[in-house]
Simulated assay, not measured.
Amino acid sequence: MGHSAKGVRGRPRSEAVERSIVEGVLKLIEDGVPLADLSIERIARTAGVGKATIYRRWSGKEELFVEILRGIDDPPPELPGESMRGDLIVCLEHLRRRGVNLRSSALLHNVFAQMKSLPKLWQAYHATVIEPQRRVLREVLRRGVENGELRDDVDIVLANDLFVGPMLVRTVLRSDAPLDEGLAERIVDSVLAGLRPTG
């Protein structure tokens, strides 16, 4: 191991270790091991590393799982920032694609289904993935009020749910409903019809 101590070469080594840990977790999940049974010890054994190696990188299972879920997900979209309508469509298109991924990936679907019964993991996922996305959307709506694209008496938190809700209903509750290409645009325009300033 001595030769890898040249500073520069240390980083790829640690990336390789992280990759083997993540792949170890994914393999265990694919093999049908429930998330609740995935101890750090078992993950370390599968990845061929010591427990301390995992704890050096992640505070525990929740943080590790959330990072893995984030890695499977598309990164958050870049918002064009030219109009509220355009930004909303980009945000919803991101949700639509995630929905398509969730349907097509048995692994993702399985993880999401189990996560609901693990409150700590669900909270961690909410805090690190869902809440930042909701903040972005609320900011888009707030800018919409400022530039006159949205009525100033609109409840921003409720409006957020009005835009996001239809996509989540189709993804989570109605898995047979189409998640077709133009859906994000249709949802945004339908909701905006009721929330735009009149006259």
Rank of each mutant, 00 (worst) to 15 (best):
R96A: 08
E41G: 12
T171Q: 10
T171H: 08
I40F: 02
R9M: 03
V140Q: 04
A184D: 03
V90E: 00
V191H: 09
G165I: 11
P77D: 01
E63L: 01
A47G: 11
R174E: 07
T171M: 11
T53Q: 09
R85F: 00
S20V: 05
D74W: 09
G2P: 00
T128P: 02
V129T: 15
A127L: 15
G99A: 03
I72N: 01
C91D: 05
S105M: 03
S39R: 06
S105D: 13
G81E: 04
H94W: 15
R85V: 02
G165W: 06
D152S: 07
N101Y: 01
G10S: 05
P166A: 07
H3L: 07
L183W: 03
S39P: 12
L28K: 05
D189F: 01
M1D: 02
H94N: 07
Q114A: 15
Q114C: 13
A16F: 00
R151Q: 02
G194R: 12
Q133W: 15
E82F: 04
M84K: 08
F112D: 14
M1T: 01
I43F: 01
A159W: 02
M84C: 10
I72G: 04
L28T: 10
A106K: 11
M167V: 15
K61I: 01
Y55I: 10
S190D: 10
L195K: 07
A16E: 11
L173M: 13
D161R: 14
V66I: 01
I43C: 07
L102F: 10
P76K: 04
V90L: 00
I68H: 06
A184W: 02
G2Q: 04
V169R: 10
D153E: 03
D161C: 08
E181F: 08
I187C: 00
M115K: 12
V164Y: 05
V90A: 00
V172P: 00
L35S: 01
I89T: 00
A5R: 13
I29F: 13
I40R: 04
D180N: 10
S83T: 14
E131F: 09
G7M: 08
V66N: 09
E149D: 05
V191D: 05
V136M: 12
L192N: 08
L38W: 07
R96V: 06
L150A: 03
V145F: 06
T198Y: 00
L158T: 08
D37R: 12
A106V: 08
D152A: 03
L69P: 05
R56D: 05
D176K: 07
Y55S: 03
T128V: 11
I156W: 01
L150F: 04
D74E: 13
G48R: 11
L64Q: 05
D153G: 01
M115N: 11
L69F: 12
V49D: 03
E41C: 04
F112V: 13
K61H: 11
R45W: 05
R45H: 12
L64A: 09
R45C: 00
L162H: 09
G10K: 08
S175E: 15
L88C: 10
W122H: 15
A36H: 13
I54K: 04
A5Q: 11
A5L: 13
L108S: 05
V140L: 08
L121P: 07
